[in-house]
Amino acid sequence: MTNPAFYSKVAGQFGGYPDWPPRETHYPEGDPEQYFDSVLTALGAGAGAGGGGTRLLDVGCADGRNLLAVADRFSRVHGIDLSPEMLAAARRNQREAGLDHVLFEVADASATGLPDSSVEVVSSRRGPLFPDEFHRVLTEHGTVVHLGIGEQDVRALKEVFGRGQHFGRWNTVPLAREGQAQLEQAGFRVEHRSFRFDEYFHSAHDLRGFLQKVPIFEDFDPVADRARFDAYVERAGSQRGIHLARHWFVLVARKQPELAS
């Protein structure tokens, strides 16, 4: 989580991540969320029923809903975030799920405070990437699973607004390649998969509500941004809905054994 103030604002308004407005989504290259979850759950299941002794650290866990959905595959789950408001929502969701082997707490992903070699898996779903810290807390053959937002994500929308998450990064080193290089430098072997997909919002009202809840524009203001918003709706509208072109990626990084000197 790059800006805890933004996510705290969302949690304060909606009690955590709200249900998303209705939209139609097409995944010609697969659903990145499903792929991320399949990799993560396979790592947990690899130690036996219930995850055996597999321990998971999730960084940028937000309201915990996604983490709790895979938590039963692991023996111990530790979710960290910088937003106390999001973590309060996560604990409410945990109580409803009845999972007592999950711990949520405020912590910085760049300096988790966890002991060396204390978890088998680190996950980051649209969260931060700190390869050196992840390498430190992982056991010898541990794995990082990272879901990231690519530099081409909703580029046409950002160009209309003249700002936004990763604005202007589309002509530089791709974010997936940059993350891969950082992980490799820290001592991981990395697999990379990119996903391009399309979302169609049923109405301008639905898209406006969506933009208030995600960090595409952390400063999105329905009043101040009305002219830009209307211009994009006019440009991107079709019979299928208002189009957003998405670009995400997943990195699976396996820690390499250190060579004896």
Results as ranks from 00 to 15, higher is better:
residue 121 V to T: 08
residue 56 L to P: 09
residue 20 W to I: 13
residue 36 F to P: 05
residue 100 D to A: 10
residue 114 L to N: 07
residue 77 V to S: 00
residue 66 N to H: 04
residue 96 E to H: 12
residue 69 A to V: 08
residue 82 L to K: 08
residue 106 V to Y: 07
residue 48 G to K: 02
residue 79 G to I: 02
residue 97 A to D: 03
residue 45 A to D: 04
residue 27 Y to F: 15
residue 81 D to E: 06
residue 125 R to A: 00
residue 126 R to A: 15
residue 30 G to F: 06
residue 17 Y to S: 14
residue 126 R to Q: 15
residue 73 R to P: 05
residue 69 A to K: 12
residue 94 Q to A: 03
residue 88 A to Q: 12
residue 89 A to F: 09
residue 59 V to N: 01
residue 102 V to H: 01
residue 78 H to D: 12
residue 26 H to T: 15
residue 87 L to H: 05
residue 65 R to A: 14
residue 100 D to V: 06
residue 88 A to W: 12
residue 45 A to F: 08
residue 118 S to I: 08
residue 56 L to K: 00
residue 77 V to K: 05
residue 96 E to D: 05
residue 80 I to P: 14
residue 19 D to P: 10
residue 38 S to G: 12
residue 53 G to D: 04
residue 127 G to Q: 11
residue 38 S to D: 13
residue 33 E to G: 07
residue 103 L to Q: 12
residue 64 G to E: 09
residue 89 A to W: 04
residue 19 D to Q: 13
residue 35 Y to S: 03
residue 70 V to N: 10
residue 31 D to Y: 00
residue 21 P to R: 12
residue 17 Y to L: 15
residue 105 E to V: 10
residue 25 T to D: 00
residue 98 G to E: 06
residue 117 S to F: 05
residue 90 A to C: 06
residue 75 S to H: 03
residue 97 A to R: 10
residue 101 H to I: 07
residue 34 Q to I: 13
residue 33 E to L: 08
residue 102 V to D: 05
residue 121 V to L: 04
residue 19 D to A: 15
residue 26 H to P: 11
residue 26 H to V: 15
residue 77 V to Y: 04
residue 89 A to L: 08
residue 32 P to G: 02
residue 19 D to Y: 10
residue 51 G to D: 08
residue 27 Y to M: 03
residue 96 E to N: 09
residue 110 S to Q: 14
residue 113 G to D: 08
residue 118 S to M: 00
residue 35 Y to I: 14
residue 37 D to N: 12
residue 84 P to K: 13
residue 103 L to Y: 03
residue 72 D to Y: 08
residue 56 L to W: 04
residue 49 A to Q: 15
residue 117 S to Y: 02
residue 90 A to L: 00
residue 103 L to G: 08
residue 39 V to N: 14
residue 59 V to W: 03
residue 87 L to C: 05
residue 109 A to C: 07
residue 54 T to N: 06
residue 106 V to A: 10
residue 74 F to L: 01
residue 84 P to A: 14
residue 121 V to F: 01
residue 41 T to E: 07
residue 99 L to I: 01
residue 119 V to E: 03
residue 84 P to C: 12
residue 124 S to H: 05
residue 12 G to Q: 06
residue 90 A to H: 08
residue 114 L to T: 03
residue 95 R to Q: 13
residue 88 A to P: 13
residue 110 S to N: 15
residue 93 N to I: 10
residue 118 S to P: 02
residue 30 G to L: 10
residue 36 F to R: 00
residue 31 D to M: 02
residue 76 R to K: 11
residue 102 V to G: 09
residue 113 G to N: 00
residue 89 A to H: 02
residue 104 F to P: 01
residue 43 L to E: 07
residue 32 P to D: 07
residue 66 N to Q: 00
residue 19 D to W: 01
residue 49 A to I: 09
residue 75 S to V: 00
residue 89 A to C: 12
residue 94 Q to V: 00
residue 80 I to L: 06
residue 13 Q to W: 06
residue 82 L to N: 11
residue 26 H to N: 13
residue 105 E to D: 07
residue 28 P to A: 11
residue 23 R to T: 11
residue 57 L to W: 04
residue 51 G to Y: 05
residue 47 A to F: 06
residue 56 L to R: 02
residue 52 G to M: 00
residue 31 D to F: 01
residue 97 A to T: 02
residue 94 Q to F: 09
residue 21 P to V: 13
residue 53 G to C: 03
